[in-house]
Amino acid sequence: MSKIVYEKSRGLSETQLSYCPGCTHGIIHKLIAESLVELDLLERTIVISPVGCSVMAYDFFNCDGIQASHGRAPAVATGLKRTNPDKIVFTYQGDGDLAAIGTAEIVHAAHRGDNITVIFVNNAIYGMTGGQMAPTTLIDMKTSTSPLGRVEALTGKPLLVSELLSQIPSTTYIERVASHDVPHLNKAKRAVKKAFQYQAQGKGFSMVEILGTCPIGWNMTPTDAMGFVKDTMMPYFPLGVYKDEGGEA
């Protein structure tokens, strides 16, 4: 007699992920897929993929998918959800997509309190385009457009998205989690699951910010990148529930 402790989620498609070795996008995809299957929501879910590393996320989940233009995924989600209120709609966005070019769209989807879920992966860099500085790049962090390190005097301090969105009156649930080890992944999955549950219950706008890695963009091994999340990112981007007005999930 044996029991399956872990196997690939049926919420994921057969398509091989396009991510670099050791990138946490794959791990985060698993959390989403598992949550949707466990909540029995997969078959009425539509994923909206961004521009960036996860541009092909529509290919990786076993549900309908829409590819959005850069930063506009929350607006696409609004249009889809308003015409299909009984469906589960989530955007999957990186920090370039959500925190730079798409700031108007994310802020106003939150402002309207749209009943959608946003999975925001913050890895402090533009991965797809080759490791440029993002609004979330840490001070002194070297990127291909901050070759000497991010300089606060010229580029300000890294943008704190969870803190920002939690100030918007109509948001329901905002939490920042991390993906660098299994205990944190368990917490991250609980957050993702709660966000989808809230949406299914019609409770409004939810966002889970997940600190992730970019081993190639950071010029680190995948295992060193996991350490960087813990030692360097987490002190600046504190984990925790920034807002939860959803009550019992």
């Binding site: 959005a68 696409v76 249009g79 889809l80 959800k81 015409t83 769209e105």
Partner: peptide
């Protein structure tokens, strides 16, 4: 831009 992308989603 938001409006046309809402159209895209709908």
């Amino acid at each position: 831009i938001g409006a046309i992308n809402m159209c895209y989603g709908a």
